[in-house]
Amino acid sequence: MDHFVDLTLSGLASGAVYAALALSLVIIYQATRLVNFAQPAIALIAVYTAATVAPLTGSYWVGFVAALTVGAAAGALVERFVVRPIARVSQLNGIIVTLGLLLVAQGGVGMIWGNEQHGFSYAFDFVGRPSPADVFALVSVAVVAALLFCLYRFTPLGLRMRAAAFRPEAARLSGVKVGLMLTTGWAISALIASLAGMLAGPPFISPNVFDIVFVYGITAAVVGGLDNPFGAIIGGLLVGLGMSYVSGYAGPELATLTALALVVLVLSVRPDGILSRPTARKV
């Protein structure tokens, strides 16, 4: 029974991280309808910023703020100057250009900081089950999801962002600055990706650290459904718990297969994820 509790707690902790990445993907999808490989790139830049700033200033939280700021700025710049002119042509080209950005970020980080692994601190003490660090991850992800939900449902900004993403022409006609909305969407998404990086990075970071985490993040996003921030949370926790239980009871080599099975199962019943609105989609 103890074992079950242990597995549940560690599943929740890693699930929170996947949920954070999934959340940032949901925003991007809401804003640009892209599968965005630049998310791990931004997370990477953010954690290396933190790893550089924190020791200099002696404060984890200064590093944390620096990471989120740099990450959000990188997201906005990338959208405005790299992604927008290319994604306009086709969605596929948009995906590929974010892949190109990922390569640039990974190589760039390797050039500056080397390919070695570096220790990277948790926000809070990691000792205990659940540890303060785990609790921080869960709480921050829940708060972010709630804020996003409010942003999209109750604020004019959120409405404009959705309009700009899904009906850009109509939005433009009714006076929405579509370009600005896209950049805002990317900045918010990059901010959340940076947060996800700060949660997923510890204990060790290296240029490829987010590859696999990002795959689980996408898994969580499509399992939960890209329409709803709470879907990302449900998806993240499902993936985290599922992989933890299977690792613990059947063997860790099955962890990735579990994620695959989860995707197949959920999507065969609900092709738009758990929290999709069944009638919303038009072909």
Binding site: L34, V35, V215, A221, L254, A255, T256, L257, V263, D272
Partner: peptide
């Protein structure tokens, strides 16, 4: 993105 995500996890999961 649902198709992209499903095929992505296929490539990662299969080597397991």
């Amino acid at each position: 993105p649902y198709l992209a995500g499903a095929t992505l996890i296929l490539a990662v999961g299969l080597p397991g």
